Amino acid sequence: MDWIKRINSTVDYIEENLDKEISYEKISKIAGCSVYNFQRMFSYIADKSLSEYIRSRRLTMAAFDVINSKEKIIDIAMKYGYESQDSFTRAFKNFHGVLPSKARKDIVKLKSCPKISFQITIKGEAYMNYQIEQWPSFTVSGFKHRIKTNEAFSFIPQIWDTAWKDGAMEQLMGLFTQADYRPAGFLGISAGGKWGESEKMDYYIAVTRYVDDPQCKRVKPLEGMSTFEFPKATWAIFEANGELPDAVQQVYKKFYTEWLPNSGYELDDLPVIESYMQDNRQEVWIAVVKANDK
């Protein structure tokens, strides 16, 4: 329940600042997770990106100002974050289908995006196969890419495509054959993007090379690889078997909209891990803590 309250608090913050600067750092701080994870979470819950939602709400409110006030169009444009009247006019026409000048003069149909409100839902349409595990600290190594947080959704598929072409995956396979520890397979890890440093984040394509267990032997990374160390934590591990990317995306959607609000857990402040194995087998590792322990 507290998690739902925090998500709704972020929406309230957005609503209160539609005519001011909206800080993604502030949003992530209210939500208690990184900017990237909140953007991803929001898109799965709302079925639209955070930036699209903010833009739609601003253009909805801007339309009210256009038809109900005598403010200059340029002043309304500036009020809602547009640098020029031309850019505002283009955005307004794309959203509403008419120019703001015509909306002011004539009776026209305008589009409205209402404020979103999140509630707990219990659908039970399909099972989610998962397990909760107390997992020791572990180390992953691979190739790190520094990317802009707001471009992550488009850049990450390109990173994987390039890795298959430039030999990076062959090097990771060499490391994987020596280690073969859980989290298994090739790992996709989004790290960083927290408040205070939200503009950029690191994305790793990696493999697990050491787990803090007496029977585990530490494997050295290859030259040029970067390393990330995870502390001991509680992980909710979900099966995401099936065709990509739909199988993994469905797990995220059900996790954020059904599992997490009803689980008694909250998100821990650790990167989410996507584990890609053979034969369309995948796992999504999400660190969690008991709601009353956070």
Rank of each mutant, 00 (worst) to 15 (best):
R218N: 13
T177V: 12
Y181P: 10
V11P: 07
S190M: 05
Y252D: 05
R55C: 07
I132H: 01
I107H: 09
Y276T: 06
Y36T: 03
E274I: 09
V219Y: 15
A31T: 03
I159E: 00
G81C: 02
M78Q: 12
K29F: 10
E229K: 15
P261V: 11
V288P: 09
A179V: 05
P221Q: 15
F228W: 13
E71Q: 11
P221I: 10
E125H: 08
E151Y: 02
V288C: 15
E151D: 13
E274K: 08
I14A: 05
L260C: 13
K194E: 02
S275R: 09
K217S: 10
T60P: 12
R281K: 04
V284P: 06
R40W: 07
R104H: 07
V289P: 09
R90P: 01
L99W: 05
Y265V: 12
L99H: 09
I54Q: 06
T227L: 14
A31L: 03
P136T: 12
S56N: 10
S56W: 10
F230D: 00
D86A: 01
P136D: 08
A291S: 14
K123Q: 10
A191M: 09
I7G: 11
W259P: 07
Q131I: 09
I156T: 00
R209T: 12
N262I: 07
Y210Q: 08
